[in-house]
Design a binder for these strands. Sequence first.
DNA 1: CCCGATTCCTGTAGGC
DNA 2: TGCCTACAGGAATCGG
Length: 276
Amino acid sequence: MPELPEVETTRRGIAPHIEGREISEVIVRETRLRVPVPNDLGERLVGARIGELSRRAKYLLVPLSGGDAPGGTLLWHLGMSGSLRIVRVGELPRKHDHVDLVLDGGAILRYHDPRRFGFVDWLVDSPERDPRLARLGPEPLSDAFDGERLFALSRGRRVAVKPFLMDNAVVVGVGNIYASEALFMAGIDPRRAAGRISRERFDRLAAAAREVLAAAITQGGTTLRDFVGGTGEPGYFKQRLNVYGRHGQPCRRCGAELRLVTLGQRASVYCPHCQT
DNA sequence: CCCGATTCCTGTAGGC
DNA sequence: TGCCTACAGGAATCGG
């Protein structure tokens, strides 16, 4: 499922194939995504040129110029089963291939999303003013994210540290997989109340989150079932996972049996010996 | 404000 | 080669 590393992998994979290209045709096969595909998407995009791709949290931003879309931006979210791939003109769409952007030069940017938790939306205004982006916390790989911030925001909070770390107002892009892994690396019990964790331990947690996300990006993301990057390769981070999806199995560090609990309506696996 | 519960969706795994 | 159910989860939304 696409978390920050998977979205970043997608951005890097597709950028060289679509930046500077002109959109010649837009094919929408399914409009019923998390946000309905705008009716006039084709009218707005055909003839527009794609600028430099960026990522904010788990959103991909595709700026466009020219055509009927001067200054606009596509806001793309992959949900939990979405993927964007470059395919050649003529490659037949498969089930759940919902949107194609046909580009000059013979490539298609194809959006596939079986569970339809993702969306593609059109922003006329500047992206920072979109409410979905306006209230987001800092990027986990930026200087604005550190133990000091985690400590300051958590004082007085009784919520468990794992859902706290997954709160987009605290830090963006840390979903279930990487929150679980970061807490393991930092040796922190995911059930512990956020407000009762020391500054020192939050320093370790911030460093761990940073490290696990950076490593996952290097590995091309985590492919659990069917995630593929922009050019179709799976990610190889799965083999590095220490706790996510491993409940009942032995801890790689101490051998204790990994436990499963539910926190914030999410499965959470941890080592009862290494995480306190 | 804080926090937990609910909702969207479909492929897959597991029980029988 | 089957049927049924539980589960996966990002983020918006609601209720206490």
